[in-house]
Design a protein around this nucleic acid. Sequence first.
DNA 1: ACAGCCTCTTACAAGATGGTAACTGGCTCA
DNA 2: TGAGCCAGTTACCATCTTGTAAGAGGCTGT
Lengths: 226, 226
Amino acid sequence: MKALVIEDDHDVASYLVKGLRESDFVVDHADDGKTGMLMAASEEYDIMIVDRMLPGMDGLAIIKTVRATGNQVPILILSALGDVDDRVEGLRGGGDDYLTKPFSFTELLARIESLIRRNRQAAETETVLHVADLEMDLLARTVKRAGQNIDVQPREFRLLEYLMRNAGQVVTRTMLLEKVWDYHFDPQTNVIDVHISRLRAKIDKEFDTPLLQTVRGAGYMLRETA
Amino acid sequence: MKALVIEDDHDVASYLVKGLRESDFVVDHADDGKTGMLMAASEEYDIMIVDRMLPGMDGLAIIKTVRATGNQVPILILSALGDVDDRVEGLRGGGDDYLTKPFSFTELLARIESLIRRNRQAAETETVLHVADLEMDLLARTVKRAGQNIDVQPREFRLLEYLMRNAGQVVTRTMLLEKVWDYHFDPQTNVIDVHISRLRAKIDKEFDTPLLQTVRGAGYMLRETA
DNA sequence: ACAGCCTCTTACAAGATGGTAACTGGCTCA
DNA sequence: TGAGCCAGTTACCATCTTGTAAGAGGCTGT
């Protein structure tokens, strides 16, 4: 679990960071809004804990910016402002929870867990796979490369899905036969070669960087050429 | 938006019900835990607001039971117990938020909105459709009835998906041509009839209660026979 | 009760899909 | 450098899928 704490008060910050690390979180810390936003943009966090009042930038502005980039990470707002209107504003602004200082660490932890638990449900049902500029939407059954629609047949779709789910790793012929063809024996033919060939013609031919690579003697691998 | 309020104090309850109705919620109210649980089981709510202390049954017990049935509705716990340990216990027990009495209505509303907003994301990526004992997994591309796998062709799958998404409502031929065949004109053939027939043979023939019903002069409807 | 219409079913045919086979080309190691 | 192997490509064919057509059956309103 990765957490990002954006908090300028060093006492509060170190209290949070320590406590979270003890609860097995990997914690990053930023002490101003700008740094925090950059970190939020460059890493995938499971939870963000943002102070309401920050030097140079309001906590609410951070949240709005983060949400504007499409980032759906759960955000807990921390504030000395206990006023109802402030709390309402925080929640309406895209925050997922609002906790007033002083707070107990156990309650903070319980709220974080609740937020993550809830968010996980959304994340678990991943329906779009990405490898470089190649994109597969499992629900719509569509494949795109560089934004351009590519029409693939069912068997090709399964093959590509398996390759994408194992992108960056070598995938052997035996694995493909098992997972894509449900064969538990060697059919003694070159079915795989043929389908790889067809797939290549569709996803690599028209583009400059080939993604579907042959690993001689081993199998195939889908990945961006280094 | 449908809300369920489980609260025994009549003053608080009517305050909530009135306020929520003014905010365009359709509100049901139960004043004891048992009734509340029954209502939760028989209706699909967008939000549940549960008092912590109820006659005969603890609010936490309700939440646990609701969650045990697989119901993921967001639950907000309302309580006079402001103690940190109580709040932690409430959140850990499966509640999504915990608000202490007395509270302002605007804050309650903001928290409800935040919970619903968050939950919607999970719901939007629904990948399994259910109608009676018929089940369609959109990711695995499988169809089951009464736990038994049914093999359907791609066109049949799209047809059934559309029917399931509109279960309980009449679906006209024109709608089917538009949404399942992408025809924006009448092909002057009986394609639909043929595919409905094939689908029936697969999903209804071997089972006692037919789900795919003809609505003469109008179209078709998928639903459990009353 | 019967005509006319709506729907269902079955049979058939065209086209899409996926597999086999054979040939080509290129890599590797002696 | 050349033999043997591994992978790629193309062409062909069987099967699957989907649409058309025609005939049967049943509902509805007169």
